[in-house]
Computed example of a mutant assay.
Amino acid sequence: MHMAELEGVRLHYRIDGDPDGAPVVFANSLGTDFRLWDKVVPLLPKGLKLIRYDKRGHGLSELTPFPYKMGTLVRDVEMLMDHLGVKDAIFVGLSIGGMIAQGLAAKRLDLVRAMVLSNTGSKIGTREIWDQRIADARAGGIEALADATMQRWFSGAFRQTAEFHAWRAMLVRQPLEGYLGYSAAIQGTDFMTPTSGLRLPTLGIAGTEDGSTPPDLVRETVGLVPGSEFYLIRGAGHLPCVENPEEYAQVLGDFITRQGHV
């Protein structure tokens, strides 16, 4: 268990793979911790330094008061990478993690040599949608949002499995202030202009059953970056690394290899 003492926050992180290998940094979604990547990490090519972290207000990282701003969340991982001496990483971000990836690439291209934007967008939802979710969560806790969220996150087939209930439990056990903070950060973010100015290798990954960031949104977002690639995982929802880890790891591993990063 590793904790980074950073300016204004303590972040929980984990490093797998080769400690001297080429770095790959993972940022996960709202309402999950870094166990999101557990099934994918063992399937990736050997020789990589695989870095995962819990965002502030999630998992074992420090909980700070609502609201959060996207600039703060980008700064968190920027500080973590500087703390670990990591540069020229491939950055893999899912959902809000993909927004963090876009913001970090726009700010510190020395840290990011390529990015994977998974199940994300340059803008996600509307101010009204997030206002309602924040109000509902304040009134009834994350539990009040859980069933609708699970419908958006997972395919019907996965919702019939025993594992599904573990992911629902993970969501509702996240700190409420952390969930609210990230909701506010998403609500206030539109990266269309900065992302359209990026020039780095980019892969978009989407799931056909994703009710949170549909494939067209992901395709539109990665299309802002010239020369980007797009891959659609059929039968998967918002977290294809959970539902289809083998296919997800194959696509991600192939992209990493094509960058000469192994």
Results as ranks from 00 to 15, higher is better:
residue 1 M to V: 15
residue 1 M to A: 15
residue 2 H to L: 05
residue 3 M to I: 15
residue 4 A to V: 09
residue 5 E to V: 06
residue 6 L to I: 15
residue 6 L to M: 08
residue 10 R to S: 15
residue 11 L to M: 06
residue 15 I to V: 15
residue 18 D to E: 10
residue 18 D to P: 10
residue 20 D to R: 14
residue 21 G to E: 12
residue 22 A to L: 03
residue 28 N to D: 14
residue 30 L to G: 01
residue 31 G to M: 10
residue 33 D to V: 05
residue 35 R to N: 15
residue 35 R to W: 08
residue 37 W to T: 06
residue 40 V to M: 06
residue 41 V to I: 15
residue 43 L to H: 05
residue 49 K to W: 01
residue 49 K to V: 12
residue 50 L to S: 02
residue 50 L to D: 08
residue 51 I to Q: 03
residue 52 R to L: 01
residue 53 Y to K: 07
residue 53 Y to H: 14
residue 57 G to D: 10
residue 58 H to D: 06
residue 60 L to S: 14
residue 61 S to R: 04
residue 64 T to Y: 04
residue 65 P to Y: 10
residue 66 F to G: 12
residue 68 Y to S: 12
residue 69 K to C: 03
residue 70 M to H: 07
residue 71 G to A: 13
residue 72 T to I: 07
residue 74 V to F: 07
residue 74 V to S: 09
residue 75 R to C: 04
residue 83 H to A: 02
residue 86 V to E: 07
residue 88 D to E: 15
residue 90 I to Y: 08
residue 92 V to I: 04
residue 94 L to P: 04
residue 98 G to L: 07
residue 100 I to E: 10
residue 101 A to V: 03
residue 104 L to M: 09
residue 104 L to S: 12
residue 105 A to I: 10
residue 106 A to G: 15
residue 106 A to Q: 04
residue 108 R to D: 13
residue 108 R to C: 02
residue 109 L to V: 11
residue 109 L to K: 15
residue 115 M to N: 11
residue 115 M to Y: 05
residue 115 M to S: 08
residue 117 L to R: 05
residue 117 L to H: 03
residue 123 K to P: 03
residue 124 I to A: 09
residue 127 R to H: 10
residue 128 E to G: 05
residue 131 D to Y: 08
residue 137 A to L: 02
residue 141 G to A: 07
residue 144 A to V: 03
residue 148 A to Y: 08
residue 148 A to G: 15
residue 148 A to Q: 13
residue 150 M to I: 03
residue 150 M to K: 08
residue 151 Q to Y: 04
residue 153 W to A: 12
residue 153 W to M: 10
residue 155 S to C: 05
residue 157 A to H: 02
residue 159 R to V: 01
residue 163 E to H: 02
residue 163 E to F: 00
residue 164 F to K: 10
residue 165 H to G: 11
residue 169 A to C: 00
residue 171 L to Y: 12
residue 173 R to Y: 13
residue 174 Q to P: 07
residue 175 P to R: 05
residue 176 L to H: 00
residue 177 E to S: 11
residue 181 G to S: 02
residue 182 Y to L: 08
residue 183 S to Q: 12
residue 184 A to S: 12
residue 187 Q to Y: 00
residue 189 T to P: 15
residue 192 M to P: 04
residue 194 P to R: 11
residue 195 T to C: 13
residue 196 S to F: 05
residue 200 L to G: 10
residue 202 T to V: 01
residue 202 T to W: 01
residue 204 G to C: 11
residue 205 I to H: 06
residue 207 G to F: 00
residue 207 G to R: 02
residue 216 D to W: 14
residue 216 D to H: 14
residue 219 R to D: 03
residue 219 R to P: 11
residue 221 T to I: 00
residue 221 T to A: 04
residue 225 V to D: 09
residue 227 G to V: 03
residue 229 E to N: 14
residue 231 Y to V: 00
residue 233 I to Q: 04
residue 237 G to D: 10
residue 239 L to N: 13
residue 242 V to K: 11
residue 244 N to I: 01
residue 245 P to C: 13
residue 247 E to Q: 14
residue 248 Y to G: 06
residue 249 A to I: 14
residue 251 V to T: 14
residue 251 V to F: 07
residue 255 F to K: 12
residue 257 T to I: 12
residue 258 R to K: 13
residue 261 H to L: 04
residue 262 V to F: 02
